[in-house]
Design a binder for these strands. Structure first.
Lengths: 294, 294
DNA sequence: TTAACCTATACCTTAATATCATTGATACAC
DNA sequence: GTGTATCAATGATATTAAGGTATAGGTTAA
């Protein structure tokens, strides 16, 4: 049983298709077929049930899948652990799009200065995809907003931040001394599309106070939300960190009176994997940076 | 990092010598050297410190040793687990020399009849070597006498049996109606050499009753002890199971009056390794056989 | 200094694994 | 129902990696 065979096997299992898996593995399809054949020969039974348009795992294959995963992870972690000098290496950080551009740059600049030999790879994605990648070991840690359905993952809260109301310049509420939640009920909202958890945060906050914001427009970027608000397409709520970097005067930010909407930012990682010293250093710097942000 | 590389590495680490390890691995020494070199290249640092007459593990090597062990065990167990049909496969049983020939044949006959496809390999060795092999996964289970210093191993007692006094035909004690421990104090003993735990059992039993048996002769086999007793070299104690198979009339077996010396027989295995269904079947048959022995 | 002992290197052979081209089988569209 | 697209498997061939032999090179011990 060879390491490559296991790697190949897992990819086929994931894709359910030899041809596709072979492409991703950058080997030819016949090579992949034969590799799996050898594996099956050694195990004395097939691991895939070949259907006409796809392949499915057999019972033995299902068992092998989890074991192969373990074996490869153990090998990967062994290599990291041995090469761990606490200074060089790479850290793969995931973050949701409503955090990444507003929070990471400062942290990364600071961290890179302290650890010049380290390579940091940032991946932006939605919460559920980041959690999946974290579980799979494709990223080392993820920075996202609570709540997270994080089974088998470690979660540590970093900080809480306010969501600010953002209004067009000429909006009637701009001149109101105190804006309460009930005041905004009747105005249409501009929100991020449903893949983003920020919308969930906002909607669930409103719902708890028994109204459902009417979204007139759904976009995929926070900057777009801000621009649309400036153009009077609606009002919205924007995290403090995004507001801090917004220097325009074409829109107005206001803090709600009464109970303020907030979101909690947390870091998530897979505790079953080896944590390099560099990773640990990154996490402590992350906590410090989160504390001293203001 | 290849599976073979890890296998090679572990052997060199164990032997502390490339040439010797290569012989055991049945590859040439240069092939082994190169394989380790590639491994070190991948890890970015040496795993062995080459001394002039031997090689020692570096810090990285020490780390790799335990990880490599884990990885190979995981791979082995995965293969067993997948190929496990509950009928075929092999079981490697270890037993101490004072148990193996008297206890195992009957059990093995019975087990082989029920599981004709199974292969059973019996290895006779001393208690500490068997425990070590069990820990290393070189044998699946061991049958030996308590007490066992079995860290990280599972121990289950099978049964207890009496140690019988064995005397030459013309020995003065033969005609005594009841023989007590105090009666034998003055007679010289024939014992197994110190590698065998049966001697420990006997000596510790006597010691607890405050006398130390004088050994005039030390042999390495129980059959030899029996023969020497017949030739009046001394007296001894023999486990019940060995007495049961001894059909000669050239020596006399007697049960001691009062507190009788005994030994406890137990089965030991490594709970951290995968237990095949065949192995589990063997263990239940082993328990049954031990119970119904009489 | 020489012999013994080890590991590393150079060079060659063999075996494993890849690729390319193609077949064979099934599903789906028209 | 015939044609076409989709896949995995196979055969022939090329490439690459691993292993073997011979030997160099370095260190210890007699």
């Amino acid at each position: 049983m060879e390491v490559d065979q296991l790697r190949y096997f897992l990819r086929v299992a994931e894709r359910g298709n030899f041809t596709r898996a072979a492409e991703e593995l950058r080997i030819s399809q016949p090579a992949l077929s034969r590799s799996i054949q050898k594996l099956e020969e050694e195990l004395g039974q097939p691991v895939f049930e070949r259907k006409t348009r796809s392949v499915a795992l057999t019972e033995a294959g299902l068992l092998l899948q989890s074991r192969a995963q373990q074996i490869l992870t153990l090998i990967e972690d062994t290599k990291s652990e041995i090469s761990d000098d606490g200074q060089s290496g790479q850290i793969r950080v995931g973050a949701i799009p409503t955090i990444a551009p507003y929070f990471l740059p400062g942290l990364l600049r600071q961290f890179s200065a302290e650890f010049p030999k380290a390579t940091i790879i940032v991946q932006e994605d939605t919460t559920d995809k980041l959690l999946h990648r974290c579980t799979q070991g494709e990223i080392d840690l993820a920075i996202l907003a609570l709540p997270v359905p994080a089974k088998y993952l470690e979660v540590e809260e970093l900080f809480q931040e306010e969501l600010l109301l953002v209004l067009p310049l000429e909006h009637p509420l701009v001149n109101k001394a105190q804006i309460r939640l009930t005041d905004i009920k009747s105005y249409p909202f501009v929100l991020l599309d449903e893949a983003h958890c920020l919308s969930d945060n906002i909607v669930s906050f409103c719902r708890q106070r028994s109204f459902h914001p009417v979204a007139v427009e759904q976009t995929s970027q926070l900057a777009m939300v801000q621009e649309l608000v400036s153009l009077s397409h609606g009002i919205s709520m924007i995290p403090q960190m995004a507001r801090d970097l917004d220097e325009t005067d074409r829109r107005v930010y206001r803090s709600l009176s009464g109970i303020k909407p907030t979101r909690k930012i947390a870091v998530v990682w897979n505790p079953y994997r080896f944590q390099s010293r560099l990773q640990q250093a990154f996490k402590t710097r992350l906590h410090n940076y989160a504390q001293n942000r203001k």
